[in-house]
Structures are given as C-alpha cells and as structure tokens.
C-alpha cells in the first residue's frame, strides 16, 4: 500500500472536471428545454439532456467505485472546524445529488409513459409508474434537486476559491495539477 498522497490522481481529476462541466452544461440545457417552445426542430434537445444525464449518472457511479479503489486524500488542514464540517457536508451532498438529480430526471421521464431514449436509440427501463400526478411530483423533485445541486456547487466553488485566493494553500491546485 502506497503512502497516502496529498494530491489527486489523474482519473480523479479528469472525472472531477469532466463532470463539473457536464453538470453545469446539462443544468443550463435542462433549464432551457423546460422553458422553450417545443417543436420538431428542438425535440432532440430533450434526448440530449437525457443522454448527458445518463452519462453523468454512470460517471458518478464510476467515481464512487474509483474512490473505493483509490481513496482520495483528506482535506488540507487550515480552516476552522466549522468550515471543515461544512465542506464535508457539501461533498456528501454533491455525491448524493450526482446520483439523485439524474435518477429523479430518469424517474420523471419514465412517469410520462413515454420511452426514455438516450443516444437516440437506447431505451432505458421505466423506473416510475406512468401517471401525470407522479410525473408532476417528480418534475418538481427533479427541478428542486437540480437547483439545490447548483446551490451546493456554488458553495463548493466558493470554498475552493476562498482557499485558492485567500489561503493559497494548494487546495485548488491539487485538483488542477495533481
């Protein structure tokens, strides 16, 4: 067993940044498709949102498995205890939402009674009963979780920037360069 590393390995960093951009991108796409006038020309955007969401769900599971194989290093010391506790809670919430947001979206799409198709051809199994009431409830849940996700991401980014710009302690650098 190698000595615990202070930095993040390449797979962890790639997963972190690919998912970061994917999550923010699909959040913006989701907010857009929820408001656009739907027609034949933009129907594919729903499929794109579902496809990215499904990929992000798979990546989130891969990431959790990867952390089991290669545990990430603990936080660099420095901030007061309440900030460390807040950061830990934020990380737990981020992982929960990496699973919860796409699963709620998948369930919401299932409740429409229509096939949940990703990559334009792959039909996912339905994970919720087809019912307008269930669909409305899950749509509310998906939207609420997505906005909650954005809030926790902003908290996470604020913490990272605080340590990068305020403390200059290498917290952000190790996620960028290892």
């Amino acid at each position: 067993m190698a000595a615990p590393r202070a930095g993040f390995g390449l797979p962890t960093r790639v997963l972190h940044w690919v998912m970061a951009f994917g999550i923010l991108g699909t959040f913006a796409l989701g907010a857009y498709v929820a408001r656009m006038e739907v027609g034949l020309g933009n129907l594919w955007l729903f499929g794109l949102h579902k496809t990215i969401g499904a990929v992000l769900l798979a990546l989130a599971m891969a990431r959790i498995v990867w952390h089991g194989i290669a545990p990430p290093p603990g936080p660099l010391p420095g901030p007061p205890e309440w900030q460390m506790t807040l950061a830990r809670a934020a990380h737990r919430a981020l992982y929960a939402l990496m699973l919860g947001v796409p699963v709620s979206g998948w369930a919401r799409a299932s409740a429409s009674g229509l096939d949940v198709v990703i990559f334009g051809r792959l039909t996912l199994p339905a994970i919720a009963p087809a019912s307008p009431a269930v669909e409305d409830a899950l749509a509310l849940l998906h939207r609420g979780l997505a906005w909650g996700f954005l809030a926790v991401i902003l908290l996470h980014v604020a913490g990272a920037l605080k340590r990068a710009i305020g403390a200059r302690d290498g917290t952000l650098r190790r996620m960028l360069r290892g």
Partner: peptide
C-alpha cells in the same frame, strides 16, 4: 409522424 408522438397518441393520456 415521429415515434414519441405515436407512443403518446396511443398511451393513456
């Protein structure tokens, strides 16, 4: 005219 519409059309709603 497209698959989702056919499924929606025949479906319970």
């Amino acid at each position: 005219s497209f698959p989702f519409a056919a499924q929606a059309l025949k479906g319970p709603r």
